[in-house]
Simulated assay, not measured.
Amino acid sequence: MRLAIFGATGRTGRVVVERALRRGHQVTALSRDPAAIPPRDRLRVIPGDVRDLAPVARAIEDADAVVSTLGRRRRGPAICTEGTRTILSAMATGRPRRLLVLTNYGVAESRHRGLYVAASWLLERSVLRDKEHMEALIRPSATEWTLVRAPILTDGRRTGDYRTGTDLRLTFTSHVSRADIAEFMLSELEERAYLRQGVSITS
């Protein structure tokens, strides 16, 4: 499969790129700093900002699917909302249609009244608001989207021992390794078990 990956230089994005290449996919990654991505077989790096339409359109032009692991820093711009708006504009031509996006547990329908969600919004309000606005753009789009709701992410090894579901209730002890979430996201691209749904994941 030919994948366009956005957020490829982030801590999770790097793992997704690595796992995608190990699974034999061809990867195109967009980066403002191409030198930050080591050259690899089947990996093409395009310089550019995810908020600019021209490089984004170039990144997805031959892709079978788009994967976004964009993430906002507390005091940074609303990169998830702004970048996703650009990605959706580039995908408006109708190809590719498959879109897999990493988001956070605690936004949209997963924003329940538990202590974990309340604490998350208290500590990471700007980050979660950005993700919530991002999801609001994706849901009515014509893309074949899946939203992957992550708990606390760790740098642990791939275990294959995790649970997924649309109604999981995550808590302060919920976590998953970046390697496991990368494997799940890449598997979901092919299995399409959660098409046009938000799915939570935890170990």
Rank of each mutant, 00 (worst) to 15 (best):
R125Q: 02
D180A: 02
A142M: 13
A92T: 03
A119H: 10
A108G: 11
E109I: 01
D180N: 00
E61C: 14
R98Y: 03
T166P: 12
E82M: 06
R58K: 15
L102A: 14
T143D: 09
D155A: 08
H133A: 14
S89P: 01
R113W: 10
I152P: 12
V56H: 07
P151S: 13
R113I: 01
L102H: 10
I87T: 01
T69I: 02
L186P: 02
L128D: 04
I181H: 09
R97K: 12
F184V: 08
G156L: 08
A57E: 12
L99V: 05
L168C: 02
V176I: 15
T103K: 05
R95G: 02
R178T: 03
V148Q: 10
P77A: 13
Y105N: 12
E82Y: 06
A182M: 06
W121K: 00
E109Y: 09
R125S: 01
G76R: 03
T103I: 10
I79K: 07
V56E: 01
R157S: 13
A150T: 14
L88E: 02
E61R: 15
T143M: 11
G71Y: 06
T159Q: 05
S177G: 03
S126R: 09
R169S: 13
R158M: 09
L99R: 06
T164V: 15
V101W: 08
G71N: 06
D52M: 13
D52V: 15
V117K: 05
Y105I: 13
L128C: 07
T154C: 11
L170A: 09
S120M: 14
T166F: 11
R158P: 06
R58G: 14
Y162H: 06
G83Y: 00
R125G: 01
P96N: 00
V127E: 02
G106R: 06
M91S: 01
E124A: 13
R73D: 10
A118L: 13
V101T: 12
L115R: 13
S177D: 01
G106H: 00
G83I: 06
D64K: 00
G106V: 05
P55L: 08
A65Y: 05
R178H: 08
D155M: 05
T86R: 04
S110K: 05
T173F: 12
T143H: 05
S187N: 15
R74N: 09
L137K: 06
T173Q: 15
R125N: 01
M91E: 02
S187F: 08
P77R: 11
Y105T: 12
R98Q: 07
P151Y: 10
T171K: 05
I152T: 14
Y116Q: 14
R58Y: 06
E82C: 02
R178S: 08
Y105F: 15
V101L: 14
R58T: 15
E132T: 00
R72C: 03
E109N: 08
T81Q: 13
L100Y: 11
G71K: 03
A118P: 03
S68R: 07
H175L: 14
P151M: 13
L186V: 01
C80N: 04
E61I: 11
